[in-house]
Write a protein that binds this DNA or RNA. Structure first.
Lengths: 100, 100
DNA sequence: ACATTGATTAGCCACTCCGCTAAATATTCA
DNA sequence: TGAATATTTAGCGGAGTGGCTAATCAATGT
């Protein structure tokens, strides 16, 4: 039962991370851009498409990463980010579905 | 076309308000509580169910109100809040549907 | 080894958010 | 009118967010 409680708490925390992540328009835009362009882009490609400075984009990516909304992997000198749409399902599964 | 652009911008802004509103766990809890208890509660009933001080709850309600997620109406000395589930649909209609 | 390219981390600053308490604003009732 | 009740508004303070520039790390090519 303690385990059950803990897993519920983790789930709640996960939802929290996801909803906090998508609360910022720039991060939603990053996810959409990734999705629209085949699901995978390098950090540079992403940064190039946004007005804000590269380090700012990096930080947004870090928030998305912490929420599980993107994964990354190094590819030579570049780092590839791919969108993890699965993580978005928590929004419905853990919250939205309770409403009509 | 100017009108079209403006309406898109308003929609984007509306989505922004909704997502910012539900980013906070207390506000999600308020919406769930409202829903669970028949959709309508007075400010006092809501405040009584939360640990934070009454003015804090009032401010959360204000954020939800600005996002269109609740409506309120005075009922004698009390103020009734009701959940507006319709506003939640923007999440799917204007963003989530673009993902798998 | 060294320079170059790709990306992150460090650190600063302005602003917002969210908790609180105290004061103000309805509305009802005596 | 004045007291009591229900709720909001004002205003403070600490913590977090998000923008920036400068510095750093990692991988490649010469």
């Amino acid at each position: 039962m303690a385990r059950r409680r803990q897993s519920l708490e983790s789930a709640a925390h996960a939802l929290d991370l996801v909803l906090a992540a998508i609360a910022h328009p720039a991060r939603r835009q990053i996810l959409l851009t990734l999705k629209f362009r085949g699901g995978t882009m390098t950090a540079g490609e992403i940064a190039a498409r946004f007005e804000c400075a590269w380090p700012t984009t990096t930080r947004h990516l870090k928030v998305l990463l912490a929420a599980g909304l993107v994964k990354r992997s190094r590819r030579g000198r570049q780092i590839e980010y791919r969108v993890e749409e699965r993580a978005l399902r928590a929004i419905h599964e853990q919250w939205l579905k309770y409403f009509g």
